[in-house]
Design a protein around this nucleic acid. Structure first.
Lengths: 251, 251
DNA sequence: CGGCAAATTGAGCATTGTCAATGTCTGTGG
DNA sequence: CCACAGACATTGACAATGCTCAATTTGCCG
């Protein structure tokens, strides 16, 4: 088993699945300057209205993006897991239109905005791979619009749980449809456009019906097909063929 | 007043606001191969599940993207206006995760997927501008998640109307907060996660309270500040500083 | 053991959905 | 020029999903 020489090692492998890179592309990506940073849960990584100066790769932990309405209601618009880029938007947009906050303790590799901009101009193949990354984010946002717009509470939560199951599986953080979901019910509510009370009732209902198993913040899905059906979940929108970061093979 | 020599003339100007292009960038963009196409209302431009082979620039008319849940409920996830690229996603994603359909009669300039991919590799500055385009789309999706997730019916519709007012104004299709919105109430319902019946009631209510004026499919906003307040609308998410396509100045 | 955040539960309510009828407008064919 | 069809808008009565408020329990940590 090889040890990654660079924090971007896995990113490189993911990118190479999308399109071939040449040696200089690889070197440039691996040589990207970055600052390691550890943030505690609930710490803000980006604030709406700021001029972004960096983008971060999540090495471990979870983070989420959210917006707050004028009336003070919060809506989580995405949740990010290890291997995801956070706020790659910030490399090209001049002002942050949303907040990014740590969900659990996170280790981040923060890359200066200028370095990313230089990289994509000098190495358009790498830029294309990064662009693809943000396009997949966009696809997930679209599915979330559908989720909060057109599914009832039960399907909505089931859908969220299905999405995590698949995404976490891809990066090796779920086994047998069992994973840790470090979100409070209030956060689940903010992600699904519901109230915490109702989230609780729905979770209880799903558990009662044997569709999920809950222990602390761990979620188990005993019958994937059944939950998938309840959720109306179809994974096309995750573009897994272009998302997978191939895991290190055991020797 | 100059006549655009190419359908990409206005796109070029928009892109040049984002970052300087050199002469070869400009030439490459203007020389992009395309096929003009006129589509009637409700015609599908892209279908979920297809392998995309082109992206389209809207020259005139409106189009929208939507997804349909397994239960058959439809959710519109974005509406596009002249000057927008439709499905630039298709240049890099291998499978369409949503449908694109004409709202009104549309004139499109359809660009082969391969031509776009070649362009962004050979002219990364142009690629960056296109990437920015999709990032702004992403920002709009996020706001739509908030809209359907955390606003009540009245604010939700008001927000949609505010968004159109600003976007259409930018491309010269709205004057004095007055514009044509070629959507049925059923489509408005699908865009806001409501039912057509309720959309009707809300529209009637907004009109009764003097917040909007309606004549056929035309919307007038007599008091922008008032509607903005009802909607909780803040235009940051449109990234207008990077979206504006400068209009031809009168001589 | 006290203190706190989070989860759970109950009771009542209201925003929004459902169903169904009726009205309005537009274009078309006679 | 009029009757009619069809799509869309409007309205009413009623139902229900999900919200609010408020209390209680559970789990965790010092």
């Amino acid at each position: 088993m090889t040890t990654p020489q660079s924090v971007f090692e896995l990113t490189l492998r993911k990118f190479e699945m999308r399109a071939p890179l040449d040696e200089s592309d690889r070197e440039a990506l691996l040589a990207l300057p970055y600052r390691l940073q550890t943030v505690e849960p609930s710490v803000y990584i980006v604030r709406e209205g700021e001029r972004p100066d960096r983008s971060c790769l999540i090495l471990s932990g979870f983070a989420f993006r959210h917006k707050v309405t004028l009336e003070g209601a919060r809506q989580i618009v995405s949740v990010h897991i290890p291997g995801d880029f956070l706020d790659l938007d910030g490399a090209l947009l001049n002002v942050a239109d949303h907040n990014v906050q740590a969900l659990s303790r996170c280790e981040l590799a923060c890359i200066p905005r200028a370095a990313i901009r230089d990289l994509i101009l000098a190495h358009p193949r790498v830029g294309t791979a990064m662009w693809t990354e943000t396009l997949i984010d966009g696809s997930m946002f679209r599915e979330w619009v559908v989720n909060v717009g057109r599914r009832d509470a039960r399907s909505r939560i089931a859908h969220l749980l299905c999405e995590f199951a698949r995404r976490l599986d891809v990066v090796g953080l779920a086994a047998q449809y069992r994973y840790e979901l470090p979100m409070t019910q209030e956060q689940l509510a903010d992600a699904t456009g519901l109230t915490p009370v109702h989230v609780n009732r729905v979770l209880m209902g799903l558990a009662r019906d044997g569709l999920i198993e809950r222990t602390k913040r761990f979620i188990g899905i005993p019958d994937w097909e059944a939950l998938r059906r309840v959720a109306g979940f179809s994974e096309t929108y995750l573009h897994l063929d272009q998302l997978s970061s191939p895991r290190l093979k055991p020797a």
